[in-house]
Design a protein around this nucleic acid. Structure first.
Lengths: 244, 244
DNA sequence: CGGAGGATTGAGAATCTTCAATAAACGTGG
DNA sequence: CCACGTTTATTGAAGATTCTCAATCCTCCG
C-alpha cells in the first residue's frame, strides 16, 4: 500500500511545516495514489494535459523546456517535497516537461479536486500559492544567473543551489555531500553553457578544491567558499515550507 | 477619488475575466487606495517588506534583480493588470525590485488582508494562484531564451513578447504598434546581452524590416515574421486572465 | 550654449562554442 | 568474467559570438 500522509517521511523534516489534524485528514483523502518511475523516465511531457498532479516523495528530477529546433533549457531541479504538474491543473497545459533523474516516487492528486482544496481548505490553498511564489523566486534566481553570471560563476552557483535543496529536502547524504544523479549535459542545459565548456568549468572548480564529484557523489568541503565564487546571496529557506 | 472596481477600465477588456457581483463587492473593499509614480521611480525595492501589494492600473515597468557587484537582470516586464508585490505578501520579503518605466498607477491592497481573501473568497484565491503560475511560465520562457537563444533571437523574442503583452493589456496604441518607454540598457539587461551588442541586434532587426523603433513607438509590421526569427512558439493567452 | 543621458559605430580582446579525438564508465550477452 | 557497444567524461584547438573600450553623434533641457 501507499504511504499514509500522517506517516509521511518528509513531513517530519524540520524544513516542512506541520499540519493540523484537519488538514492531515484532508490530505489523506486528497492523495489518490503513488507513482513510481525509473531514472531517465519522462514524468510529464511538455504540452501535456495530465489529469493528475504530484508531490515528490523521493528522488530528484528536472524541469525542462525546448525550442522548436531542439535546444533545451533546464528551468529547475525537482527535489522531495516539490509540487509538480500544478501548471496543468491551473492553466490547462504543462508548458514544461519533467524528467526523473534518479528513481522517483510521487504522491498523486487529482487535478479536478484542486477546486475543492481552494473552496474548503484555504490554508492548503495558501500553501499552494506559497509554493508557486517560491517557484517564481527560484526561477528568477536562475534567470539572473544565466543572464548575468560568467560560466564559472554559474557553475558554482548551481552547485550551491543543489546542495542547499538537497540538504533541506533530506536528499543529501551528509552534512556536505549528496548523491548526484545528473549528467554533465543536463548541468550544461541548466546553466546555459555548452557541454564542453561546462566540463571545463567543473574541472576548474575541482582544481581549486571547491567541489569533489566522483562515483555519483557531490561533496562541497566549504560551502561558503563556493558561495563566494558564485557571487551568491541566496539564503536557505526558513523552516515552514509547506508540503502537499 | 480613486477608480471604483466596478468601473475599472481594465476589466472591460476582452482578455480579463468577468467577476461576479459578490467578487466585485469584495474587491471594492479590498482596494485601499491608489499609488501614482513617475517614470523612472522605484516602486518596490529588492529586499523590502512592504505592507502593501499592487495591481497595475496603467503604465508599464520592469522587475529586476541584482548581483552583489551590481550586474543586473531584468526578470520580467510589468503591464496593466499584473499583480506586483505578492512575493512580500506571501514570503515576507521581495526578492526582486520593481521600477516604473513610464508613469504608472497602481491599485493598492493590504498585505494583511490576503488571508481574508483565501479564507472567504476562494475564487479570488484561485485567481491569485493562477497569476503566480502564469508568472512561473513567463519567467521560464525568458530563462529558455536567455539560456539557449542567440542574441539576435533573444532580441526578436523580446519584441514579440512585449507586443503581445501590450496588445492584451491595452497598452498598445494600435494593431501593430505600442508606446515603447524602455532604454536600450534595460533591454540589454532583460535579454542578458551587453548594451553595445543589444544595439547591434536592434539595428540588424531594423535593417531587415522586422521592427521600427522611433519617437518612443515600436512598430512590428509582420509579427509572424518576427516570431520566426525568434524561433518562438509562444501563443497569446486565452481570454480569462484574472484581474485583481 | 553647454551638459547630460542615450544611441550608434568601430575595433581589438575575451569568453564561449563547435569540431574532433580519446579515455573512462557502464551494461549486456556470451 | 570477459568482450563489446554505448553512453558519458575529458581535452585540445580553431572559430565565432559577444564583450569591453573608446569615440562620435544626437536629442533634450535648463
Amino acid at each position: 500500500m501507499t504511504v499514509s500522509c500522517d506517516k509521511c517521511p518528509l513531513r517530519s523534516r524540520r524544513i516542512f511545516k506541520n499540519l493540523t489534524d484537519r488538514e492531515l485528514d484532508f490530505m489523506k483523502s486528497f492523495k489518490m495514489g503513488e507513482l513510481q518511475v525509473d531514472a531517465g523516465a519522462a514524468v510529464i511531457m511538455e504540452g501535456s494535459k495530465s489529469p493528475h498532479f504530484f508531490t515528490v516523495l523521493s528522488g530528484v528530477g528536472i524541469r525542462d523546456k525546448t525550442l522548436p529546433d531542439g535546444r533545451r533549457q533546464i528551468t529547475n531541479f525537482v527535489f522531495p517535497g516539490d509540487l509538480v504538474g500544478l501548471q496543468a491543473g491551473l492553466l490547462g497545459e504543462m508548458k514544461h516537461g519533467v524528467e526523473a533523474t534518479s528513481d522517483m516516487v510521487f504522491c498523486v492528486f487529482q487535478r479536478e479536486r484542486i477546486w475543492d482544496l481552494f473552496k474548503n481548505h484555504p490554508s492548503r490553498a495558501y500553501d499552494v500559492t506559497w509554493l508557486a511564489a517560491t517557484e517564481v523566486r527560484s526561477i528568477s534566481d536562475s534567470l539572473l544567473s544565466v543572464g548575468r553570471r560568467t560560466a564559472r560563476e554559474r557553475t558554482a552557483r548551481m552547485f550551491t543551489y543543489l546542495m542547499r535543496r538537497a540538504q533541506e529536502s533530506g536528499f543529501a547524504s551528509s552534512e556536505n555531500s549528496m548523491p548526484f544523479p545528473f549528467r554533465q549535459l543536463q548541468l550544461a542545459d541548466a546553466i546555459g553553457v555548452s557541454l564542453v565548456h561546462t566540463n571545463k568549468m567543473i574541472q576548474s572548480l575541482r582544481r581549486d578544491g571547491l567541489i569533489e564529484l566522483e562515483d555519483g557523489i557531490l561533496t562541497v568541503p566549504d560551502l561558503e567558499a563556493l558561495h563566494e565564487v558564485a557571487l551568491s546571496d541566496e539564503e536557505p529557506d526558513d523552516p515552514g515550507r509547506p508540503l502537499l
